[in-house]
Design a binder for these strands. Structure first.
Lengths: 327, 327
DNA sequence: TTGAAAGCGGTACCAG
DNA sequence: CTGGTACCGCTTTCAA
């Protein structure tokens, strides 16, 4: 069933039906009513594919995330989705599992769908993909991995600062054997946390450290902790790249009979809701996902002036998973 | 950039380019090569909207879930998505937050996109929506809430049986003051768990019970537990409609200084991965999400013969969150 | 094996 | 304010 059937039933042209459906207020209210009636009676719903094929500006946005299973990404997705819905947009979501090849597919799908805007929240971006997005005139906002130069919008987080704070805080508590657990990903942002960790630790002559990486998942956190603790280096504090993995770390420590924080302190990153629900609740650095989702949305729909670079400052939150080092 | 440009560059018609792109093996291999070359050089990507508008069978599937934040739903989404991708389909996901009005929107979006198949994993289905899906010839598979009669596929879970097992197990442990924590949702499946709980408890003359509901979230679980425990009824065991909410319950108990399972036993449902990572790990009933995702996919793509009703039997898993009642 | 052309269901411009 | 109509980019007969 199509526009044409509705038009026939309402004794108007398809053009008029289209106008009514798009709220172009040029239509006489009596004909508008007639059309509405026909639409209702036929239970008509426009073909979205035809619409975006014919139309100019697209009413759908896209979001690509590395790992929607991690609540950090999911929270961003949710606020973006809510914003989109409230403003009459659809949101297409895709996740890449940190696989470059999946990223490629996702980007192409988004281009193929001619999304009106795309939020890229991944940690494995490749320059040629950015170029491809650019060539196809897709308005894009990047989280973390955006190129510094393009006219595309960028949202960044000052990981370095928060990570320094965390390390200093732990060092102040007497910790001198520190470990960092990261996850596999090709690029910058998580590495920035790792680099900040290494550099900060290196400032303390007495401090020693290790690092290790695994998948971004509960299992990955546990497995990394297992690998770490089965070696000769026994850390008194473990800093994790995010809360999600930290939860896996907590489990491994528990299963080894190590108490948190009496034997080992643990920190996460992101401040996902779960971080308050596990035991002990995690010391972490808050990254405001809602704010990020909001910013992303605005960058995509608020016309034109999109070439900001916004920087967000995470805030350290101390909870029960950290404490003084064993003497 | 369009088919036509590719056609021009390869000195063939758009029809031929289309054939090549769709792997119709009628094309002479030399021309095929020429076309491929042009495609590569132009870095051409088909317009998916045009494709689904023109084409017959759609290469995209849809999934509507109540709450993708709950890992239970997310896991189904993931296996469905993986299956889809591997077979060359796209997956459009939507979530309804248990809001009937959002469900309506989601269904319409899916119809509007003319998805080739739709998995509906919600607990708030309305008959008229089913009819609308039917009228629009959308091949659909329901989880839990499908109508018994239609030609549409159905995947069901025998909640009753597992809930009975859980109650009997706890009763055997000496628990006589039981509570059930559910979540708000209009319809059948979660109520089935609740009903099974009530009926089973009622068989034991000595047993008393309460029930309460809140949102399906960590906070909702905590808030329900708070409401429950601030009353006069002090349960020795709390059965939750799912693991996600149970995690919230654990937190509330902890904050009240109640030990699990020494003071209160807690059970979940679903066996999400998180249930093994929290402390104490949850006694729960396993629902095989992968299997469900798999079944859903098959129901949607495996031609025609889709009118099965598959029933899944959950399996109780005992972990540390349950123990003997205090004497 | 290939090309020409008729749609698919809308949108938007141009007349009236 | 409304209708006619030329596309949007691709698929799919029908002929050649």
């Amino acid at each position: 069933m199509s526009l044409e059937e509705v038009a026939r039933r309402a004794h108007v042209s398809t053009a008029t039906v289209s106008r009514v459906l798009n709220n172009l207020d040029v239509v006489k209210s009596s004909t508008r009513a007639r059309v509405m009636k026909a639409v209702a009676e036929l239970n008509y719903h426009p073909n979205l594919n035809a619409r975006s094929l014919a139309g100019s500006r697209s009413r759908t946005l896209g979001m690509i995330a590395s790992n929607l299973e991690n609540p950090f990404f999911f929270d961003i997705f949710q606020t973006l989705e809510r914003n989109a819905r409230e403003q009459g947009y659809e949101l297409l979501a895709a996740h890449t599992d940190y696989q470059p090849e999946q990223l490629l597919r996702s980007v192409r799908t988004m281009i193929g769908r001619r999304v009106g805007g795309l939020a890229v929240v991944v940690s494995e971006m490749q320059p040629d993909l950015i170029e491809e997005l650019d060539r196809n005139r897709i308005r894009t906002v990047f989280y973390d991995v955006g190129p510094a130069m393009t006219g595309m919008a960028n949202i960044r987080v000052n990981y370095r600062r928060a990570m320094e704070d965390l390390v200093e805080y732990l060092h102040g508590l007497g910790h001198n054997r520190l470990a960092f657990i990261g996850h596999h990903s090709t690029l910058a942002p998580t590495n920035e946390r790792e680099r900040a960790f290494v550099e900060t630790v290196s400032r303390y002559p007495a401090a020693t450290w290790r690092n290790i990486a695994d998948q971004d998942s509960l299992e990955g956190g546990q497995s990394a902790a297992r690998g770490l603790l089965s070696g000769d280096f026994q850390p008194t504090a473990i800093l994790c790249v995010n809360d999600f993995m930290a939860i896996g770390v907590l489990r491994e420590l528990r299963e080894r009979g190590l108490r948190v924080p009496e034997d080992v302190s643990v920190t996460g990153f992101d401040n996902i809701r779960l971080s308050e629900y596990v035991w002990p609740p995690l010391t972490t650095a808050d990254i405001p996902r809602n704010h990020i989702g909001q910013l992303a949305f605005e960058a995509l729909v608020n016309d034109g002036s999109v070439s900001h670079e916004t920087v967000i400052q995470p805030e350290v939150i101390v909870r029960a998973s950290t404490g003084p080092a064993r003497s």
